[in-house]
């Protein structure tokens, strides 16, 4: 892989834009097409591109085995915690509108409920994005051939 200068140069330029696009997709899931799944996969794909261009060892320097393992499980854990947070605020499990209790006491206005619902949905989208990206990166690292095989 040492001689692939063009691939390396191009992917070095492209990867930041791919990652920015992934974050855009996650953040705009409620306004248009997109969301946690798509954004997470695109983010994972940017790391996979890096690994393909620069090799497994350099790839592991960017995303250490420990980092991807921890991120794998963080996603589901945070998802459950958001659900529990809604219970704590007095609503049903994953009822985001009840999160309004944390920033407006007593009777919730329509605006506060919308804000709470938005916060909950953003939280879930980000959490899904983390899980999907981390799992895709992990699967690729494990499935691809290692240099020392």
């Amino acid at each position: 892989m040492k001689e692939h200068t063009v691939i390396r140069a191009v992917s070095r330029i492209l990867i930041p834009f791919i990652q920015l696009f992934a974050l855009y997709v996650i953040a705009h899931g409620d306004l248009g097409p997109g969301g946690g799944f798509q954004g997470g996969v695109i983010f994972g794909a940017s790391i996979i591109l890096y690994v393909i261009a620069f090799g497994m060892k350099d790839g592991r320097k960017v995303v250490a085995e420990k980092t991807s393992d921890i991120l794998n499980s963080t996603g589901v854990l945070l998802y459950v915690l958001i659900g529990l947070l809604c219970l704590l605020a007095g609503g049903a499990y994953l009822e985001y509108t009840s999160l309004a209790a944390f920033f407006s006491g007593g009777e919730h206005s329509e605006h506060a409920k919308h804000l709470a619902s938005h916060l909950g949905i953003y939280g879930i989208e980000i959490v899904i994005g983390i899980t999907v990206a981390a799992v895709m990166i992990t699967i690729f690292f494990e499935a691809a051939r290692h240099e020392d095989d």
Partner: peptide, 23 residues
């Protein structure tokens, strides 16, 4: 839910349980 994209509303809000299981 205050969300413009109905698919996201169904996926994350109305059927949050499904998505939890799927994650």
């Amino acid at each position: 839910t205050g969300v413009k994209n109905f698919v996201t509303a169904v996926l994350v809000s109305y059927r949050g349980y499904d998505t939890l299981g799927e994650t």
